[in-house]
């Protein structure tokens, strides 16, 4: 089992100083989750849901308040050392690199922390720089790198210890589309190599594309764990109809919402029967193309979590 988390709770006390006196915030509230070996698992949830906290506990940076978490069969508290040898972490953003060192120096330093000898470290650094397309800039200072290059170097850093489990916390945040595409391909390759991957993201398309299963969490609790497709089918969700038409369908029963853009409409209905009614109506009233589409992961997310993205 790649990850086994049972009834995990973690709370923080707000405030400053050594022993903050403020109110207690529960970041994880009895979370239970299992990720089999070799799975690419997505963790989705609004800001403050506890995704980063979970990643930190799994990577032994934070201790749980209660409950247990095992990574590759080792307890994150009792066998922290065994866990550390087998995992890699990539926490998004540009932080976590020495800007005054070159890419290669950064990797050689981390290689030493992952107990590689100098020769192994050099070899592995070159290999990863090549894999992530940074060979040409290998000996330039990181401060001269673009954001995307820093992110790639992050990925290289996360892979330096040849990890069996990789934790990605919002790895694609701020990536341009090309970089994000390359990232998805990299995830595919890492899965082929048999690594287990936990990835938190806000990008639903990305989750839908790369993840075998996703877990929706909110307020530190699991709402659902399913394959992206299964989640869409499981939820009693609206069917969508996409059509190229100018006909007005807003008056039909069962139509929840209509979005139209350049002669192309997306009609949200409250179920299969209504969707069929809309399609029949459109076929009678002049339509160039029409199709029913299952809800996307994003629809499911919005439905289950609600449009509370702006709340903290």
């Amino acid at each position: 089992m790649g990850v086994r988390v049972i009834d995990l709770t973690r709370s923080f006390r707000k405030g400053k100083g050594w022993r903050p006196k403020g109110p207690e915030v529960t970041a994880l509230d009895g979370l239970t989750l299992e990720i089999p070996d070799g799975e690419v698992h997505g963790l989705l949830g609004p800001n403050g849901a506890g995704k980063t906290t979970l990643c930190k506990i799994l990577s032994t940076i934070l201790l749980p308040s209660s409950g247990t978490a095992e990574v590759l069969g080792y307890d994150v508290v009792a066998d922290a050392h065994e866990v550390r040898r087998r995992i890699g972490i990539v926490f998004g953003g540009e932080h976590g690199l020495y800007w005054k060192l070159s890419a290669r120096q950064n990797l050689r330093y981390w290689a030493a922390l992952y107990k590689l000898t100098d020769a192994e470290g050099d070899h592995r650094a070159s290999e990863l720089l090549a894999r992530l397309g940074l060979t040409a800039k290998a000996d330039d200072l990181v401060e001269t790198f673009s954001r995307g290059m820093k992110q790639r170097l992050h990925l290289a850093r996360g892979l330096i210890g040849d990890p069996k489990l990789i934790l990605f916390d919002e790895p694609t945040i701020g990536m341009d589309p090309v970089a994000a595409h390359d990232f998805r391909r990299l995830i595919g390759e890492l899965r082929e190599e048999g690594r287990t991957i936990l990835i938190t993201t806000h990008d639903m398309d990305e989750a839908e594309e790369v993840c075998d299963r996703v877990t929706l969490i909110d307020k530190g609790r699991v709402i659902a764990t399913e394959s992206p497709r299964g989640l869409a089918q499981m939820s009693s969700l609206h069917r969508w109809v996409e059509a190229e038409t100018t006909a007005d369908v807003t008056h039909l029963p069962g139509v929840v919402a209509v979005e139209s853009r350049a002669g192309f409409v997306r009609i949200k209905t409250d179920g299969d029967a209504s969707a069929r009614r809309v399609i029949d109506f459109l076929l009678d009233n002049g339509v160039r193309s029409v199709r029913a589409v299952p809800p996307t992961l994003e629809d499911v997310y919005l439905d289950l979590i609600g449009a509370r993205g702006m709340e903290v």
């Binding site: 930190k56 032994t60 926490f91 932080h95 976590g96 690199l97 800007w99 981390w110 922390l113 210890g161």
Partner: peptide, 18 residues
């Protein structure tokens, strides 16, 4: 500040020696 503290804590080397 540099953001390397977290990843160092997750690395298998005891950081005090470093």
């Amino acid at each position: 500040w540099v953001g390397t503290l977290n990843p160092s804590l997750a690395a298998p080397t005891e950081m005090h020696s470093v």
